[in-house]
Amino acid sequence: MRLGMFFREALRSIRANAAISVAATVTALIAVFILGAFIPSFMYVRSAVSAQTSKVDVDVYISDTASVKQVNALRDKIGTLKTDGQVAEFTYVSKDDALRLMRERLRDPSVLDQLPSNPLPAKFNIQPTDPANANAIVAAVKDDAALDPTEGIVYPQTTADRLLTAAKFVQWAGFALIGILLVAAVLLIGNTIRLSIFARRREVEVMRLVGATNWFIRWPFMIEGVICGLVGAVVAVAMLWGIKVGVVDAWASGADTALTKSGSTAGAIAFPLLTVVLVGAGALLGAVGSGITLRRFLRI
């Protein structure tokens, strides 16, 4: 009964202050739209970076002259690193395996038939638990007797380092930006609602005069804020949906670029979830914005 009355009061005040209500709604729309465009972009970049990062592996090539004993010793060394938790997985790739893989990769495998003998060395392919461990792994095995003197150890050090830096940067910059956006949105909506309350300062005064408690006055304003936030969020989500279907999906299916391949779709946020998050954010923005702003007007 009370909630119904507060709701009717909120609708009345939206109608009575149409211009300000529209302003608040548009503010929410812009805030949610920016947030909604930014969150998937951020998630995409992050998943692209982490997809690249997981590809950083270390190849330890084994000399053709190494004895079985030496190779077993190296295997044990890497096994110890795995027990320590630095290595996630490692596999032995024999000379034959290496040749077979090469054969699969080549468009015309017949060229390999020309070879008098198998020139490819055997290797251990090591996947670090974290790309940051790569250097430690390399340091642990680099002086091993079984190592191939010419090939040695191959791993994309600079790529790994750059990716690590990029991943950290993307993460922190992303969170910072989302935080700033949220604060800005709350301030913007609060400011718009302040206009609305300022326009009705006398009305609030009268309400207090007839003995309305602060919450009795506050509820309709909060509901008003939530309605504006929700409507803004829904429109923003609709616009984002249009952009996703019309632009992003078309681009992703049409172009076969490195970027679309590297960003896993699993890492990107699902649209229904994004919708829920954004609509929730819109409602919260409206409620918090009006709640904070009202406090100033309800003192005595």
Binding site: A16, E203, E205, R208, L209, V210, G211, F216
Partner: peptide, 24 residues
């Protein structure tokens, strides 16, 4: 207490020169 002021005001009827009605 400040939170009790609304209840005081309900017990007192107030009439002002400028009526103080809600205009809409």
């Amino acid at each position: 207490r400040r939170s009790k002021v609304p209840y005081l005001r309900r017990a007192i009827g107030c009439v002002f020169q400028d009526f103080r009605l809600l205009p809409d």
